[in-house]
Design a protein around this nucleic acid. Structure first.
Length: 463
RNA sequence: GGCCGGGUGGCAGAGUGGCUCAUGCGGAGGACUGCAAAUCCUUUUAUGCCGGUUCGAUUCCGGCCCCGGCCUCCA
């Protein structure tokens, strides 16, 4: 079975066929680094990480190039700097670092290239100049604008026509626009704001041009996959298409548009004003990154995902169960070394069918049941494939021991074991009240005891 | 208003023109345990509404209702 992906532009599931199987390109819109990333930002990170892992599995790790940008010039960054007084460079550096740390916890592989907008001003200017030369763009009052009516294909991604957009526009039309739908490629910058000298005066890029420039620079004029959140379809991606294709006629900008659905929190849109804004960092305080990741993957990527505490707890319980089964398996680390490719099983078919991670996950869980009933020999056979599938989803990446006991300091472990020994002695003496006291005290500190049939006692951290 | 997505059991969430409609979480009962925890066994419940097509629709078509998103801040 071959990979099929839903293409936003055609509104259909389509076989994914890269232009060149030896060089598969994927561009995903990365964060604007003005504040900590939130769990809504985390969804595309996780979704496209799965797609990246899948593409690497199909075409080979060396034949896939994943580019995810960092937007480090933006009005929101300027506003944040003005408000806090912190220099822009400090904000972007600090936020970028935090972003990397946060998504690493989600088991997201780093992209092959992570370009920064400010390193690509020359490439942006080049595209803008080409657009002016071909009369798709014009300069007015220090602004350079893309003239939407000059692009007959405009709207083909988001399936809107210009008149509808203009009619629905909530924003006052700026006087320098020839057409209400025109959008900014370059705008003047005051002395106290980031700016670059250009033939149109000192200025900075508009919102959309960076992705056109960085995509072309690192992946060529046509990219196989361009992804991001569904809210980016319009205007961001529509405008990218216009800029890119009008500045390089005869070439499609993107072969396959992939967009993930929106994330809500307790049924409501996440927003600062509603007070339900959850950063990845906050979410990580309540649950390991792998739990958050599983939560993300337990709903199909194109569907809305509602973030709830209950959902997080369910994801945790599911993961606990899988790790428990792994904990009982011998030869885990050896099995992890065995390379496995997609082999036409139910799991592979599910993930190849437009990234049906919920279905793939259910198959993984069903097979985990099988594993728990296998002989050592059968396990040796089946474990590598199971783990390879888990790798594709980016889960079960820890050792079971670390999963259940990680995060405890050495001295605490000694303490716990001492308490367990005391309790064992009490139980032997049939002093169950004392034994239960010890267990309760540990439980209050988040340590759960499990008595084994052989008389020993194991422990784990509670969620 | 325009465009897009969604409405499945107590919850999360897939698939499917008909066979007992996955998987997980939870609930119930049982086994195990001093009691728990974990595990194992058993078990409970669903396709928003109204029509149409069909021998038969949750699945296809039409209409309606409801929810969410986008319409140049937004993953």
């Amino acid at each position: 079975m071959a990979l099929t992906l839903y293409n936003t532009q055609t509104r259909k599931k389509q076989p994914f066929e890269p232009l060149d199987e030896l060089s598969v390109g994927m561009y995903v819109c990365g964060p604007t680094v003005y504040d900590l990333a939130h769990i809504g930002n985390a969804r595309p990170i996780v979704v496209f990480d799965v797609l990246y892992r899948l593409l690497r599995s199909i075409y080979g790790a060396d034949c896939v190039k994943y580019v995810r940008n960092i937007t480090d010039v933006d009005d929101k960054i300027n506003a944040a700097a003005k408000e806090s007084g912190e220099p822009i460079s400090a904000i972007t550096a600090r936020t970028t670092e935090a972003f990397h740390a946060d998504i690493a916890e989600l088991n997201a592989l780093p992209p092959d290239v992570e370009p920064r907008a400010t390193d690509h001003i020359a490439e942006m200017v080049e595209i803008i100049e080409a657009l002016i030369a071909s009369e798709h763009a014009y300069e007015k009052d220090g602004h350079v604008l893309f003239h939407v009516p000059s692009d007959p294909g405009y709207g083909k991604l988001s399936h809107r026509d210009r008149d509808e957009m203009v009619a629905g526009a909530r924003v006052e039309v700026a006087p320098y626009k020839r057409d209400p739908a025109d959008f900014v490629l370059w705008k003047p910058s005051a002395e106290d704001l980031p700016g670059w000298d250009s033939k149109w005066g000192r200025g900075r890029p508009g919102w959309h041009i960076e992705c056109s420039a960085m995509s072309r620079k690192h992946l060529g004029v046509t990219v196989d996959i361009h992804g991001g959140g569904a809210d980016l379809i319009f205007p961001h991606h529509e405008n990218e298409v216009a800029q890119s294709e009008c500045s390089c006629p005869g070439h499609d900008f993107v072969r396959h548009w992939v967009h993930n659905g929106f994330l809500s929190v307790n049924g409501e849109k996440m927003s600062k004003s509603l007070g339900n804004f959850i950063t990845i960092r906050q979410a990580l305080e309540g649950a390991p990154g792998e739990v958050l990741r599983l939560m993300m993957l337990s709903t199909h990527y194109r569907k809305p995902l509602d973030w709830t505490d209950d959902g997080v707890e369910q994801a945790r319980t599911r993961l606990d169960r899988l790790y428990r089964i792994l904990a009982k398996a011998d030869g885990l680390s050896e099995a992890r070394q065995v390379a496995k490719s997609l082999d036409g099983d139910k799991f592979s078919n599910a993930i190849l069918d437009d990234l049906n991670t919920p279905l793939a996950l259910s198959e993984l869980e069903r097979r985990a049941d099988d594993l728990s009933k296998m002989s050592a020999q059968e396990l040796q056979q089946s474990l590598p494939g199971f783990l390879a599938n888990a790798d594709l989803l980016g889960i079960l990446q820890k050792e079971p021991e670390a999963w259940f006991k990680g995060g405890e300091a050495e001295s605490d472990v000694g303490q716990i074991e001492a308490q367990i020994a005391l309790r064992l002695a009490a139980r032997k003496a049939k002093d169950f009240a004392a034994a239960d006291n010890i267990r309760d005290a540990l439980a209050e500190n988040g340590i759960i005891l499990e008595d084994r049939p052989d008389g020993s006692t194991d422990w784990r951290r509670a969620g």
